[in-house]
Design a protein around this nucleic acid. Structure first.
Length: 439
RNA sequence: GUCCUGUUCGUCUAGAGGUUAGGACAUCGGGUUUUCAUCCCGGCAACAGGAGUUCGAUUCUCCUACGGGACGCCA
């Protein structure tokens, strides 16, 4: 760490990790990386009724999956731990005692209340500018059951952990006055605040919530989205590098990110754009990275039979990468390379009927079987010759042939996929098509 | 209801006191004499409304409308 910036992400593990939380974590992480500061993860688990172990595991796991690693927090420790609020009671008692000594609190109906100043507080928000508001009523900081409430622990921990910048959702903007009252009571200069705009539902009113479809990080992980794609999309919700750049590697985002460029308007979540950005990242993957991920996806989706021949698989990936939008599509997209009993799709058949497919395939079968070197160039030359000799467009050969060898109307470049399948397989597939579809 | 906050194409955004208001997604159309979910080209599409300041405002100020948030012994 070469700067004194200390930021924190302070989630409450009460459900699955959602996009809004991921975006808040991301902005904190980006700012820490950009300033070479420290990113602290603090778990706000004081609500024993709603916190669950599963939620915590999901949170940590998905944060790591996204690559949002923390410098201090659960599992990694740090100088200001513990990082679970449920384990910090002594700290809170100590700070409460301080307020007692200062005469800032009183007890009423078993709970402990903070006396507010009665003065208008001005918050100099890094994103919204000066915000003035009066906190007029005293509020509870310790419940009658002896446990501290959010506002209190949040401020105490930020003080105790030396947080310099509080980057959180705009839904906390109104809470900040309570926090400012607490800082005043403690006699501590507040950190800088940056309230980032909220993410709204794709359609309809209100902010995005865990209940909305597409709102859980877990969903994208299960669909094999690339973490860097999600990070890239999320970074563009409320922030912009202001140079028309959109598809960026994470290093570029870190270098460009700054709180002063975060805007103050809520953004609507757009899954289509997320898809697009993910697809761009899939295309930009190195062959090695694509292979690694491809193998994982094939294994997890029950296609172990596809991964045995590494060289063949790499050849298939090479002609398929540019066509894929997400790894979720991979297994289905390449299935027929590994299965001689692939189905012939009726919709695909409809598209080739007009080309007199039986005749075309018989011609192709004869010419292709005569090739001594089943190369992409020779296949292409062969089809062109056929086309010229019979005065028939090449498409009339290509479409039925693709249908015959894959059962589909779409797929990777035909000239490139045939050599991978191999001459005998291609001829056998043409024959099967002739026998079962065109007899 | 009270308080806070915001308002550029359908969506994410750039922008400047005087611009043909730019880019991207989506969408529509065309092309790549091989499909397309790739690639290329093109079209459609925005400064919420009203006052004020100003030679001039979409850009600054105010009001209205609309949006979002907060008002718990939840976080």
């Amino acid at each position: 760490m070469t700067s004194s910036v200390r930021v924190r992400f302070a989630p409450s593990p009460t459900g699955y990790f959602h996009i809004g939380g991921a975006r808040t974590a991301l902005f904190n992480w980006l700012y820490a990386k950009h300033t070479q500061g420290t990113f602290v993860l603090r778990i706000e688990d004081t609500d024993t009724e709603r916190n669950t172990k599963e939620s915590l595991n999901s949170l940590l796991s998905n944060l790591r999956w996204l690559g949002l690693d923390w410098d201090e927090g659960p599992d990694v420790g740090g100088p200001y731990g513990p990082y679970f609020q449920s384990e910090r009671n002594e700290v809170y008692q100590r700070y409460l005692e301080q307020l007692r000594q200062a005469g800032c609190v009183y007890e009423k109906e078993g709970a402990i209340w903070l006396k507010v100043s009665g003065a208008t507080q001005t918050l100099d928000d890094l994103i919204h500018g000066p915000v003035q508001r009066l906190e007029e009523k005293d509020f509870v900081i310790y419940r009658s059951n002896g446990t501290p409430v959010f506002h209190f622990v949040n401020v105490v921990d930020d003080i105790d952990m030396h947080i310099t910048h509080v980057i959180r959702g705009e839904d906390h903007l109104s809470n900040t006055n309570k926090h400012l009252e607490l800082y005043r009571a403690f006699g501590v200069t507040p950190p800088k605040f940056a309230h980032i705009p909220l993410i709204l539902k794709t359609s309809g009113p209100g902010k995005m919530s865990k209940r909305d479809s597409g709102s859980l990080v877990e969903e994208y992980r299960q669909k094999y989205f690339l973490p860097e794609g999600i990070i890239n999309y999320l970074s563009l919700l409320g922030w912009s590098p202001k140079n028309d750049r959109e598809i960026m590697p994470i290093a570029e985002i870190i270098a460009a990110f700054d709180l002063k460029d975060v805007n103050n308007t809520n953004a609507r979540f757009d899954e289509k754009k997320l898809m697009f950005i993910n697809a761009e990242h899939v295309k930009n993957l190195s062959p090695e990275a694509f292979y690694q991920q491809g193998v994982i996806v094939l294994k997890e989706t029950g296609h172990e039979n596809a991964i045995h021949d590494t060289n063949r698989l790499k050849a298939i990936f090479a002609i398929v990468q540019e066509k894929l939008r997400s790894f979720e599509e991979l297994p289905h997209f390449i299935e027929y390379f590994f299965d001689e009993s692939y189905p012939f799709e009726p919709e695909a058949f409809k598209k080739i009927e007009k080309y007199q497919p039986k005749q075309r395939l018989l011609e192709l079968k004869e010419k292709l079987s005569a090739l001594t070197n089943f190369s992409e160039e020779n296949i292409e030359a062969c089809i062109h010759t056929l086309s010229e000799t019979n005065q028939i467009p090449t498409g009339h050969y290509i479409h039925p042939l693709r249908f015959a060898v894959s059962g589909r109307s779409v797929g990777p470049s035909l000239y490139h996929m045939l050599p991978i399948l191999g001459q005998s397989t291609v001829l056998a597939r043409i024959q099967r098509c002739l026998d079962t579809q065109l007899s």
